[in-house]
Amino acid sequence: MTLSFNIEYRTNWGEEVRVLGSIPELGNNLPEEALPLHTVDGIHWNTDVDVQAPKSGVIEYCYHIYQDGKAIRTEWNSLPRSLHVSGGAKKSYRITDCWKNLPEQQYFYTSAFTESLLAHRERTAASKACKKGLLIKAYAPCIDGDHCLAICGNQPLLGDWNPDKALPMSDIVFPEWQVEIDASKISFPLEYKFVLYNKKESRGVAWENNPNRYMADPAIGADETLVIGDRYVYFNLPAWKGAGVAVPVFSLRSEKSFGVGDFGDLKRLIDWATATHQKAVQILPINDTTMTHTW
C-alpha cells in the first residue's frame, strides 16, 4: 500500500516539513523518526511511502516543522488526523492536506463537547473503499446525535442539489466527518456544498455558509483514493447555549454530608443538575494552583 502525502507550507531557510504517524513507516509517533517530505520551491512538500496496513485499519498522523533535526513547530493536533485504509498491496492513497492552525470556536473540539454535550454515542462506520475513490473529510463539531453532515452537489449520487437526497457522511472520528465517493460515477467538474442533515426526518436542514465548492478532474487512477481533508464547515444557526451552575465544593450542603461540602455532595449536585436539565457544573479548583502557575 502506498501513501502519498502532499501539503503546502511556506518554510523559512533551513526548515523542512516532516510527517509523524502511528505506524513504523511514519516513525511510530517518535519525533526523531518522523518521515521527511521533499520540495523544489520551499512551499509544496510531498513524499511517497510504502506501508503495511495496520490491523486496526486506522493510521493517525500529523505534520511538524524541523530545523537542524529538531522539531520547532507543529500544527494543531488536539484532534489527530486519521485515515481509514483498506485494500491490498496495490492500493494507493493520494493525500492532500493543509496546515492545521487553531480552529475557530476551538472549545467545541474539547472533550466537554465531543464526549458529553454534543457526543455521538452511536457512530456510523467508515465508508467502504472504492476502486477509484474520492474521500472527502470535513470538521463540523456543532452537530448533535440527531443530525449529521452530508454532501449535496451536481451529481446523482449527491442528490442533484436536492438537500433531502444529500449523501450522509460518517462520524466515525467525530467531530471530523468523512465519506468516500465512487469517483468512476462522478462527471467532473464536481460542484458541491455541505448540508446539515436531520437523520430522523431524512431531510436537509441548512446549507453551509460558504460558496459552492469546486473540483476539476483530479485524474484518479485505478486502485487509488484521493483524500481531500481540512475542510471547515459552518452554518448560520443560533449559537449553542446551555444553562449550568457554578459553586465551590466547600459551599455544598446536604443532609448526608458533613455540612462543609464534600465529594459526596458534588455527586448529588451533578445528579440534581441532570434532573433539572442543566448542561454544566463549574467548581473552583480543588487543589493548589500556585506551584504549577495554572491559576
Rank of each mutant, 00 (worst) to 15 (best):
C152N: 09
S202C: 11
T110S: 14
I136A: 01
Y192A: 04
L134V: 06
K128A: 13
Q106T: 09
L102K: 14
Y192L: 11
M169E: 01
L157F: 07
K200S: 12
N162G: 01
P103D: 07
W177H: 06
K132F: 03
Y197I: 03
W161K: 08
A150G: 05
Y109N: 10
T114I: 12
D164N: 15
D164F: 03
L102C: 08
L190C: 06
V179Y: 00
Y139N: 09
E104N: 15
F108Q: 06
Y107F: 12
L117F: 10
D146C: 08
S187P: 00
Y192K: 03
K132Q: 15
L167V: 03
E104Q: 15
A183D: 04
L118Y: 07
P163H: 02
A183I: 04
Q178Y: 00
L118V: 09
T110N: 09
G133S: 10
V195N: 00
A138N: 04
G133W: 01
S187N: 15
W161R: 12
P156Q: 06
L135C: 10
I143C: 04
A166W: 00
H147M: 10
P156W: 03
A125K: 14
A119V: 15
Y139G: 09
E191N: 14
E176P: 00
I181F: 05
F194G: 00
I151G: 00
I181D: 00
V173H: 14
A138I: 04
P141C: 04
G133N: 06
F188K: 10
L158N: 03
C152M: 08
S184R: 13
R121D: 09
E104T: 13
F174V: 02
E201G: 01
T110E: 11
I186W: 04
K131V: 06
A150H: 02
V179A: 10
L118H: 08
K199I: 13
I172F: 14
G133Q: 06
A183V: 05
V179L: 03
L134K: 08
K165F: 06
C130M: 13
D164E: 08
E180G: 08
P175T: 05
P103Q: 11
S184W: 05
R121L: 11
T124W: 05
L134H: 09
L118S: 10
